[in-house]
Each structure stands twice: as C-alpha cells, then as structure tokens.
C-alpha cells in the first residue's frame, strides 16, 4: 500500500467546490494537490453523490421552466 499522509480536516464548502470543478472537468494543479491532501475519498464520494443530485435537480428545474412558457 502506498503511504499517504493522513488528510487534514476540510469544510463542506471546499468539498462542494472540488465537486463543482470535477463536473466541469478542469482544476488548477495547485488546488488539485491541496484537494488530495485535505479531502478523504469518503468525502469526495458523498460530495459527488450530492453534487449529482443537485445537478439532476437543476436540469429538471430548467426543463420545467422551458416547458412552462
């Protein structure tokens, strides 16, 4: 097993920011390294699932707005 330093604590906002950039597919190398140091895989997975739910809800809302006109 590769040795990785224990992750530091991070805020939900930082996880949300990382998930947002991951959906877009772009991230600064520096921020990426900091994500890796601070965010645990569990936080990333939970953040990703919440992000996906928000993404779907946003799309559904847009569809409803388009159809209501």
């Amino acid at each position: 097993m590769a040795s990785t330093p224990p992750p530091q604590k991070t805020s939900p906002f930082a996880v949300a920011k990382t998930v947002f950039w991951s959906f877009f597919g772009i991230r600064k190398g520096r921020d990426y390294q900091s994500d890796i140091a601070k965010i645990t895989p569990m936080q990333a997975i939970i953040g990703g699932l919440i992000g996906a739910a928000i993404f779907i809800a946003t799309l559904v809302t847009i569809v409803q707005v388009v159809l209501s006109k």
Binding site: W21, S22, F24, I26, R27, G29
Partner: peptide
C-alpha cells in the same frame, strides 16, 4: 492538465 484529465 493531468489534474483536469482525471476530473474530466
């Protein structure tokens, strides 16, 4: 953009 490749 290695990082963005992983994210994408």
């Amino acid at each position: 953009g290695y990082a963005s490749m992983v994210y994408a």
